[in-house]
């Protein structure tokens, strides 16, 4: 395997893991939803998405450490832009939460997806 093959595998691994974890979760839902085990252990989408996201962050972080300034750039401008999008995300939080309350979406998953899976890639 050349370095490019390793890198391709490196990119694909987090997505493969996430897909497998979702499949595993669906399997658990199908078979164990009625069992007391499901009630006891925190088997829900937040748990699996969090796990998948952590793995993705780990791999992206590892690639960043290994190949610094090849896949990612760290300049003052990128820092400013990231700070800007973070400020906008916080500013937008008010209307987002109000929309959430108005439509009675009572699940923490929404905020999880918003913060971890949506703002993070920016």
């Amino acid at each position: 395997m050349t370095i490019n093959n390793y890198l391709s595998f490196f990119y694909l691994l987090p997505e493969i893991f996430l897909s497998l974890s979702i499949l595993f979760y669906l399997f658990l839902i199908s078979f164990f939803k009625q069992s007391p085990l499901y009630q006891k252990i925190f088997f829900n989408t937040v748990f699996y998405s969090l796990l998948g996201t952590l793995i993705i962050i780990f791999f992206l972080g590892a690639s960043e450490v290994c190949f610094s300034n090849f896949f990612f750039y760290h300049t003052y401008t990128t820092f400013v832009l990231k700070a800007l999008i973070l400020t906008f995300s916080i500013l937008a939080l008010g209307p987002i939460i109000q929309g959430y309350i108005l439509q009675k979406l009572n699940s923490p998953e929404f905020f999880f997806f918003f913060f971890v899976r949506y703002c993070l890639p920016c």
Partner: peptide, 20 residues
């Protein structure tokens, strides 16, 4: 996305956002 420097990383990040 602001600091990515490679199309493959960009693709991964766009998909990550798209899934969400």
């Amino acid at each position: 996305m602001f600091s990515c420097g490679d199309f493959l990383i960009l693709y991964l990040l766009i998909e990550l956002q798209g899934l969400c």
